[in-house]
Design a protein around this nucleic acid. Structure first.
Lengths: 175, 175
DNA sequence: CGCTGTTATTTTAACGGTCGAAGCAAACAA
DNA sequence: TTGTTTGCTTCGACCGTTAAAATAACAGCG
């Protein structure tokens, strides 16, 4: 073991650091959640609807089942969300050619437009600041975040590089 | 400048690291959110209700206005949440002595019991693993998390060392 | 071919969270 | 005192969510 391991360690210090880490984590969550609301609001959609739109746009097309799995909600929920998006001409339901039980949800030009125009200031701010860091700082942050992520999630999660609070139900109000 | 700054840097590497950081962040969010649901469910409460209970327990007592501010929702929402908790004998409404417009929400023994029995496995898992790390690793994680948090949140957020997805659920819509 | 079981999706019914607006009561200010 | 602000609740409406039931279509299998 390296000498540094032999430095006396007070239990209070460990506790403090644990609290610090939890507090920092919660700040991260809260900032992301609050921003997700604002983002969805300014895009004219609810966060849940926007999340569907993002996934569909990212994957090209997705079945309700796949959407449900990725968002961690039931298929019934996806049905209602897609209904809303269809009524707003943001996505389309395209019957599958190979399996007529399936429907592929695809994005419309209008839907893509919505995503392009979504300001997404939080992610932009983060990306901007992140890319302004020193190389070793970036590496350290990535290592730390991945470490924390692996400490938290049990199963594998395929996460896209999109900073949102995936699944929350939510609503929106009229402008 | 240190020599390390002079190492050639390819733009692809920066991009990759940015994506990596966003992906890790999203994994953290998702794990926390999914767990918040499970936790609230096993405690017999909804996530929003549990959050109110946690805040009230932590602060001893809180007015609806303070709760609304801390959770980032309207007072009307707090009213309904507190209604539910009161009907379950988790909290009490105590009229303020000093200002009869105000109501102080306090936790009941039963409510405190609920929190104590809440398994909160995610936080426990994180805390356990975190405290099993080397001292320098803990320090690195805290530094990284705090760095990220400060990169994300604009204004100050008073975050308690409780790992939850504070405020979900929003909104409304009118078609 | 027809029967059976499985899978994908939608529908239905019910509930919780959320908001804005309106209402009410108490505190405050002029 | 009177008008204004403040704290909270009520009301009405909508969204997100789920479990369970209903549809529909695929896959075997004899």
């Amino acid at each position: 073991m390296a000498k540094i391991d032999m430095i006396p360690l007070r239990i209070e210090d460990v506790m403090d650091r644990t609290d610090d880490s939890l507090i920092a984590l919660r700040r991260i969550m809260r900032a992301t959640e609050l921003y997700a609301r604002e983002l969805a609001h300014s895009a004219g959609l609810t966060p849940a609807q926007l999340r569907v739109l993002q996934i569909v746009d990212e994957k090209g097309s997705a079945t309700p089942k796949a959407l449900a799995k990725q968002m961690g909600v039931s298929q019934a929920t996806i049905t209602t969300l897609v209904d809303k998006l269809v009524s707003r001409d943001q996505v389309r339901r395209v019957p599958s050619e190979t399996d007529r039980r399936q429907t592929n949800v695809t994005i419309t030009e209008s839907g893509h437009e919505t995503l392009v125009n979504a300001p997404d200031a939080l992610q932009q701010k983060f990306v901007r600041e992140f890319e302004g860091l020193q190389e070793w700082e970036q590496a350290m942050l990535v290592a730390a975040l991945e470490r924390v992520a692996s400490m938290l999630d049990a199963e594998e999660i395929d996460a896209a590089p999109v900073l949102t609070t995936g699944d929350l139900h939510i609503g929106r109000r009229r402008i």
